[in-house]
Design a protein around this nucleic acid. Structure first.
Lengths: 129, 129
DNA sequence: CCTTGACCCTGTAGTCGCTACAGACCCCAT
DNA sequence: ATGGGGTCTGTAGCGACTACAGGGTCAAGG
């Protein structure tokens, strides 16, 4: 399977596939006579895993660890749990931050009464503190 | 006022202050005999504005526009409102995305029953789809 | 007077996860 | 033989910083 098809199947940009190979997240595939990358079903599965994990916001380092763990199926799954849990924690932290931010923005916007920039409450709020 | 003091007052990294100057967000300050940057109160205010806006998640381009508007106090404040509103919208979009993500992560983590990586529900979930 | 140490200078490269080229090559259909 | 679509490598760009290296400046203490 050539890179374009892999790209289509997994919904991954061709350049991204090559990028994953470059950083060692995907193994170097075999090549055709014309030096085209030739992927096996296994590679596609690995890429799907990566994309799904990225979709859930895991960073590349985490995904690397998860893939490594996948290659040691006899190990205890608590390491997997740990990675996922700590990711969830950081997502929840970001969520709280964003909520606060949203509330501050709403508060700021509610004060706007129109008029000139000179009297703009939003600009004043930003200038304060 | 030297850059270190400005840094302390505003809680901004020294390198960040220089970065803002480089990208034209802060004006080039005058220099002392020893070629040290010498800031006026005005510059500190501008930097505070920038940091406050960054804290609210506005990107540099937005901040540039807001600062420009601040220099035209006679203009109508609706442009300010527009920038803030569209930022709020994007924050709310990100918020919704993060909430979904969080729920998916929670769902995934609830399935974990311990045991070996081979049977790990989290790994299976990531591999699926 | 000299040294020490804190601060400051410029310029460049690194971060993260891609994305976007340029310029070349391969392959298949017409 | 030609055209166009795919692929190749290598490099640079994004945003918003951050982190040096390798030097200069300045005030206090010995």
């Amino acid at each position: 399977m050539k890179i374009g098809e892999v790209s289509r199947i997994t919904g991954t940009n061709v350049e991204t596939v090559r990028y994953y190979e470059r950083i060692g997240l995907l193994p170097k595939p075999s090549r055709t006579g014309g030096n085209y990358r030739s992927y096996a079903a296994q590679d596609v599965d690995r890429l799907k895993f990566i994309r799904h994990a990225r979709g859930l916001g895991f960073d590349i380092a985490d995904i690397r660890s998860l893939l490594d763990l996948g290659e040691h199926p006899e190990r205890d799954c608590c390491e997997v749990d740990q990675i996922a849990t700590s990711h969830l924690v950081s997502v929840e932290n970001k969520l709280r931050q964003l909520e606060q931010l949203q509330q501050e923005l709403v508060r700021m916007l509610r004060q706007c009464r129109g008029g000139q920039v000179a009297d703009c409450r939003i600009m004043l709020t930003l200038a304060e503190r």
